[in-house]
């Protein structure tokens, strides 16, 4: 009610004055560049990078090159696998953190590696996995192996490091949602005769659905567009779509093709975000009705 009062009194001019600088900044430096990418994807490739002003769909035709399709499917596979592992590992972590008395300590322990420079973290994995790295040298020192194991520059290394890099992105939203969850509901479910597994699947998970979806989006999308990890710990046959896009910009200088790929990724991400926002909205609506929660519990026995 107070809000309404204020709005009436001071009108909309102030709101626009406050928000316009950011709105303008993001329009000019984020939306316009995206618009240029959309435009470029329909133009002809210039000789030395850049574009020629001639409408063509050739960039989109080039996308269906079997090599690119293979990379696209590999990216989907790697991103799905890495995201699943990440979420499965992050869920119990978020739960344990939310129930802990030392929330801030655990948060700090998750955030410190997360804030450490991503290149340093990837580098650390190179130091561990490479043929003269920590693991191989240690195994040689105890005499278990005489030749280095091929631990790096393969898909397994890419997936491991991707999980490593993005697990905080999943833990943090899961923690935040589970922290708001009323744990007494779990006890209620148990009292009504649910097993431990039932109470988690039927009471906890539905109630933290929005957190799970946020975690999914915030891991799947960046992993899908990952560039540095496959570049530094992957081999040629574990390149992902991000590497293709960058190569099109820096090496082959095919800007329309890079733009077309970027556009596909953008559309994909946008769909994900819309899904997340609608599910968050429905979650809020759900939380308002206590009746439904009671229904969930009742349905258990």
């Amino acid at each position: 009610m107070n809000t309404h009062h204020l709005q009436e009194r001071r009108g909309r001019r102030l709101g626009i004055t406050y928000s316009a600088p950011m709105g303008l900044w993001l329009t000019v430096f984020f939306l316009v560049p995206l618009g240029i990418i959309i435009l470029y994807s329909f133009l002809k490739k210039g000789l030395y990078g850049g574009v020629e002003w001639e409408f063509t769909l050739s960039a989109y035709q080039q996308m269906f090159n079997p090599n690119f399709m293979r990379v696209l499917f590999r990216t989907l596979w790697v991103a799905t696998l890495a995201t699943c592992f990440t979420i499965l590992l992050a869920l119990p972590c978020g739960y344990a953190m939310a129930r802990s008395r030392n929330q801030v300590l655990w948060l700090a322990l998750v955030i410190v590696p997360f804030w450490t420079n991503s290149l340093i973290r990837i580098y650390a994995w190179i130091a561990i996995l490479s043929s003269e790295g920590f693991v191989n040298e240690a195994l040689k020192a105890i005499g278990l192996i005489s030749e280095s194991l091929p631990l790096i520059y393969n898909q397994g290394a890419v997936i491991t490091v991707l999980i490593y890099m993005y697990i905080p992105f999943a833990i943090l939203p899961l923690f935040t949602t589970i922290d708001k969850f009323d744990f007494q509901l779990l006890e209620a479910a148990r009292d009504l005769g649910a097993t431990k597994a039932e109470s988690i699947v039927k009471v906890l998970l539905p109630n933290i659905r929005s957190g799970i979806i946020t975690a999914l989006i915030f891991t799947f999308i960046p992993i899908f567009g990952a560039y540095t990890v496959p570049l530094l710990v992957g081999g040629k046959d574990s390149y992902l779509i991000g590497n293709i896009i960058v190569d099109q910009v820096t090496k082959t200088r095919n800007w329309p093709l890079a733009s077309a790929f970027s556009l596909v990724l953008t559309v994909l991400s946008t769909i994900g975000v819309i899904w997340m926002m609608t599910s968050n909205a429905s979650e809020k609506a759900r939380q308002k009705s206590v009746v439904q929660v009671a229904d969930t519990n009742g349905g258990l026995s």
Binding site: F30, P33, L34, I36, I221, L265, S269, G272
Partner: peptide, 14 residues
């Protein structure tokens, strides 16, 4: 939520 690569490339092109 957009992958960083896309933001980087779109800004480079811009």
């Amino acid at each position: 939520v957009l992958p960083e690569v896309i933001i980087g490339i779109s800004m480079l092109i811009f």
